[in-house]
Amino acid sequence: MIALQSEPFEPGALLTRFAKGRSETGAVATFTGIARAEQGETRILELEAYPGFTEAEIGKIADEARRRWRLDDLLIVHRVGQIAPGEPIVFVATASGHRREAFEACDFLMDYLKSRAPFWKKEHGPAGARWIEPRPEDYADAARWDAEQETP
């Protein structure tokens, strides 16, 4: 399931609900991203999505994860709107028969979300507001999976 929401979420509650009632899954991996204060440089993070389009684009990468790994299920919850430092901004959970596939799929989904997902991010700080683009490391992290796919 993929959900965008402006309300804060509680990662523990999402994990409890996601893991419940899975007697054959064996492994659930999760990642929680938390908005950074950047030593006071960021007071508020503003995240804009294109409703409908953003979910559909994330859905394509979720389908790609399902093709690459044997997943029983996955969950992506992403905040939009105004986010304060310390608040969770993204939660990804993957469920699989074994841990390796759950870990890798979770890692893959996060690399995609950080570099290519249709969001526009603005940092509001003491010196004003600025739009942020992915860091070179974010692109490099995402490119790891491209290289892997080309290997026979």
């Binding site: 991203g33 997902a117 526009w120 991010k121 974010d138």
Partner: peptide, 10 residues
């Protein structure tokens, strides 16, 4: 019609 500048990721 939507104009989408370079995406920042989440």
């Amino acid at each position: 019609v939507a104009f989408l500048p370079p995406m920042s990721g989440g």
